[in-house]
C-alpha cells in the first residue's frame, strides 16, 4: 500500500486540460522528483495534492484511504506539508517564530495564555540540529541566506512529523553552495522515513537526491522511472518531447 496514490487525476480549467489522467504513487521514505517544462502541469498537480484545487476527476488515496482536500488545512491534517517556492516566511520574525507561526507553544498564567518563548527556542534549536543546519533560532529571517531560509521553511514541516513533504523548486533562488545544503536536508527527510515530492527544473538536483523521477508533458505523465534506470539525457528528451514516452 502506497503512502500517496493518485489515480486518474484530471484537471480542466474551462477548455484547457491542465492534467489528463495522471497516476502517481509515492512510498514512505521515497524521494520522487517531478519534472516537466513550464505549463506541463507540475504546479497544478502539486496544488491538487496540497488542497489548493479539487481535481476535476480522479481520486487521491493516503495510505489506501480515499481523501478529498477542500482546502489546504485538510491536506495538512492528512499529514501533507508544503514548502512553498517563495518560502512563505515572515522576514521580520526570528527563525524560531517562523517555524512555530500559527502553532505557537503556550503556557498559561491564570486566565491568560502567553507564548512559551523558551520552549519554542529550544524545540526550534533541536529541529535545526536534526536537520544539521547552523541556523540559529533567534536570528531574524531577514538577515538569512537563501539556504538558511530554506532550512527554516523545511523545519516548519517537521513540527507535525508529516508523512509527505511537497517541495516546490526549493533550489531555484539560492546560490550554488547553498544548493548542496538544501539537497542534504531533503536527503535527511527521506532517510527519516518521510516521503518527499520534489518539483524541480534542475536536473542535477533531481539526480542527486531522488529515488524516482516522474515526467509530465502537456498534462500527461510520460515517464515514471527509477533514477538508476534513466539518465539526464533521457529525462531531458522526455521533457521536451524528443522522446515520446518511457
Amino acid at each position: 500500500m502506497s503512502l500517496l496514490e493518485l489515480v486518474g487525476i484530471t484537471k480542466s480549467f474551462g477548455a484547457i486540460h491542465a492534467l489528463e489522467g495522471v497516476d502517481l504513487e509515492v512510498e514512505a521514505g521515497e524521494v520522487v522528483g517531478l519534472m516537466g517544462d513550464n505549463g506541463a502541469g507540475k504546479s497544478t498537480l502539486m496544488k491538487i495534492v496540497a488542497g489548493n484545487f479539487l481535481p476535476t476527476e480522479g481520486t487521491i488515496r493516503i495510505e489506501g484511504r480515499e481523501v478529498e482536500f477542500q482546502k489546504p488545512v485538510d491536506a495538512r491534517m492528512a499529514g501533507i506539508e508544503i514548502v512553498y517556492q517563495d518560502l512563505a516566511l515572515c522576514d521580520n520574525l526570528s527563525a524560531a517564530a517562523n517555524v512555530f507561526l500559527g502553532r505557537e507553544e503556550k503556557k498559561r498564567i491564570g486566565p491568560f495564555a502567553f507564548i512559551d518563548h523558551k520552549s519554542i527556542f529550544d524545540r526550534a534549536a533541536k529541529i535545526f540540529a536534526e536537520l544539521k543546519s547552523e541556523t540559529r533560532p533567534r536570528d531574524l529571517v531577514r538577515q538569512m541566506s537563501g539556504g538558511q531560509r530554506q532550512a527554516v521553511a523545511i523545519a516548519r514541516t517537521r513540527l507535525s512529523d508529516p508523512k509527505l513533504v511537497l517541495m516546490d523548486e526549493p533550489t531555484a533562488a539560492i546560490s550554488v553552495r547553498q544548493v548542496a545544503e538544501v539537497l542534504a536536508l531533503i536527503k535527511r527527510l527521506g532517510d527519516s522515513g518521510h516521503a518527499v515530492i520534489l518539483v524541480s527544473h534542475r536536473m542535477p538536483d533531481v539526480f542527486e537526491v531522488c529515488d524516482r523521477v516522474a515526467v509530465l508533458r502537456r498534462g500527461l505523465k510520460v515517464a515514471d522511472k527509477s533514477i538508476a534506470e534513466t539518465s539526464p539525457e533521457e529525462v531531458t528528451g522526455l521533457i521536451t518531447g524528443a522522446i515520446e514516452a518511457a
Binding site: A88, L89, C90, N92, L101, G102, R103
Partner: peptide, 14 residues
C-alpha cells in the same frame, strides 16, 4: 506582527 511582515505567509501558516 507576522501579518505585517508577510500576510501571505501568515495565511499559509493557518
Amino acid at each position: 506582527i507576522a501579518i505585517g511582515g508577510n500576510a501571505e505567509a501568515a495565511k499559509l501558516s493557518g
